[in-house]
Amino acid sequence: MAVIEAEQERGLANAMVPALGRVAQVKKETSDTFTLAVEPASAEPLAGFQPGQFSMLYVFGAGELPISISGDPQERSRLVYTVRSVGKLTQLLVSRKPGDVIGVRGPYGTHWPLKAARGKDVLIVAGGIGLAPLRPAIYHILRHRADYGRLIVLYGARSPRDLIYRRQIEEWARLPDAQVLATVDYGGVAWHGHVGVVTGLFRYVRLQPFHTVALICGPEIMMRYVIWELETRGLQPGDLHISLERNMKCGIGFCGHCQYGPNFLCKDGPIFPYHEIRSWFGKYEL
């Protein structure tokens, strides 16, 4: 019927069928978190991505998961993922060996507003594995250093042994015009850094309202406290960007699982300017 003919142009490619990616490298970050580099396993290249976007990764016969892309957006030959093993599928993913092939769909979702942030200071606040989707933004800023003001990275993890990208964090901290601070919930004797929640780091940074864009990813409760702190310090709700997490079965707006009020996190999110979703954010059992 007529309605349908207009759709014909889009073709009947099955968006639920993954491309094949070969695991090229597996790097241990912590006892439960691994970074996988994935290269195309066929002649077809894997699609490029914007910092903050995610893929759906498929393990043969087992299932499929949303995982953020954590690598350098400039690096076109491979896609990098950092996965924390918390259950059956993530355990299978982190135990892939070089040469193993997985399915890759995407990239999907919204991205960090790196264009809008030009000329401003960028504050990055991450909790735990939440640093993974932020790392591409850091790569981008470091590559286009003159386009941005100060880079501030505040990162919280459970313990020193749970800090991911540790060597890189130390490198970033040595760069001029960058302030990089980590905190842990439980320190231990060898830890000389900060102990406590990530909001405890705000007292060490100077933030310029109207001149700072904040990119935030971590557990919802942590993001709630971070937003509260930042608003108290005069940052504008439109300058705060958060990445949200919900169950996802398709990544493309069909399965209904990722609904968050009127939003589908897979296509309207996972990254939102805070002012767009503030009426939903923090609602219990939304």
């Binding site: 019927m1 759709e7 014909q8 889009r10 099955n14 968006a15 639920m16 069909f254």
Partner: peptide, 20 residues
């Protein structure tokens, strides 16, 4: 269901093939 499943960027192929 047409509006839901024949999305802007992706169409659900299973629905679309039957609907056509």
């Amino acid at each position: 269901q047409d509006r839901v499943l024949l999305g802007e960027h992706y169409g659900d192929v299973i629905y679309e093939a039957r609907r056509r």
